[in-house]
């Protein structure tokens, strides 16, 4: 059973065991517009919660993707480097950014659940 949590910067983290799959939400990709470039970290990089983990760019906007939790980057999605459009087409699926080995699961509880995030998004627009 996987569980998905959200940040106020519109990243999601889908928890599968010790590992969290991180990407940007459908709302975020819509706000950015057509994604044209992503910059991913190297696997093995250790990131702190809230630190810059990746960069995502559209034609007119650029955003940092922050690590929702602390941990080590264990994998990155090379496919979105070649096909950045995947981030728009399938942000929660093929458009994922990176996998983090979660250091402290307690940090997850500081993030929003699905319902809270949906409420947060409606307050944004």
């Amino acid at each position: 059973m996987s569980e998905t949590r959200y940040t106020k910067d519109h990243e999601y983290i889908r928890v599968e065991g010790d590992v969290g799959i991180v990407g940007i939400t459908d709302f975020a990709q819509g706000q950015l517009g057509d994604v044209v470039f992503v910059e991913l970290p190297q696997a093995g990089k250790v990131v702190a919660k809230g630190a810059e983990a990746a960069v995502v760019e559209s034609v007119k906007a650029a955003s940092e993707v922050y690590a929702p939790v602390s941990g080590e980057v264990v994998d990155v999605n090379g496919a979105i480097e070649g096909q950045p459009g995947l981030v728009n087409e399938d942000p929660a699926g093929k458009g994922w950014f990176l996998k983090i080995k979660i250091k402290d699961k307690a940090e997850l509880s500081e993030l929003m659940d699905e319902a809270a995030y949906q409420a947060f998004v409606s307050s944004c627009s």
Partner: peptide, 14 residues
């Protein structure tokens, strides 16, 4: 004009 995300009018202090 392209790759403008490198530039000040989008990236500002970065």
């Amino acid at each position: 004009l392209t790759l403008s995300t490198r530039e000040q009018h989008i990236r500002r202090d970065k």
